[in-house]
């Protein structure tokens, strides 16, 4: 009788599993069809770090360099000089997004609230060098800020990253056109 009981138990166990799969089969799917549909990310969700500006469009960054020092992977590159009023003027602010690990420490340590984590995350590009984002690009994304800074993050306009990237491409072409001596791969970086 032990065998029979075993068989009955097995059949019941297997039948239960089939009940579950049948039930789930009839349920609506949970898939989000990604490129067509996008989830609404919560504010503070960490995409690429961007530079914020005040109402006049001037960068809040004071070139103090704390973010550069505190970045665990050292991907931030800042160049500045002393202006006429002895204040630092930001010349270059590059972030190498190919090495950035989106930890958000730069936004956290910034005493002026000049860096925030945006909700832009689609970083595909054709050239490795294009993954280094420059001051103007970071500022352009930061200017489309839609929400106040929450959890060191902001929301930006949908698709702004693509626009910025398209802008860079055309700018690179116009820059490369007169100066034919510079190699084209460097053209986009040196502007």
């Amino acid at each position: 009788m032990g065998v029979l009981k075993n068989v009955v138990n097995s059949v019941v166990g297997i039948a239960k599993g089939h009940k579950v799969t049948l039930k789930e089969m009839l349920r609506p799917t949970v898939t989000v069809m990604y490129p067509q549909e996008r989830l609404d990310l919560p504010v503070g969700s960490r995409g690429i770090p961007v530079l914020l500006s005040d109402e006049q469009g001037n960068l809040l960054c004071t070139s103090c360099g704390v973010c550069e020092r505190e970045c665990p992977v050292q991907v931030i590159h800042i160049v500045s000089h002393r202006g006429e009023d002895k204040r630092k003027v930001l010349d270059e602010f590059d972030i190498d997004m190919s090495r950035c690990m989106f930890c958000g420490i730069c936004a956290e340590v910034c005493a002026f609230g000049a860096i925030a984590m945006s909700d832009q995350y689609e970083l595909d590009d054709f050239e490795q060098g294009d993954l280094i984002y420059h001051k103007d690009q970071l500022a352009a994304i930061g200017r489309t800020q839609r929400t106040p800074i929450t959890n060191y993050g902001i929301k930006t306009e949908v698709g702004v990253l693509d626009q910025v990237r398209a802008g860079r491409a055309s700018a690179a072409q116009t820059a490369a056109a007169p100066a034919t001596s510079t190699p084209s791969s460097e053209g986009s970086r040196s502007e």
Partner: peptide, 10 residues
């Protein structure tokens, strides 16, 4: 299709 719907995907 069946595997998809069993697993809550289309």
């Amino acid at each position: 299709k069946i595997s998809g719907h069993v697993q809550n995907r289309p």
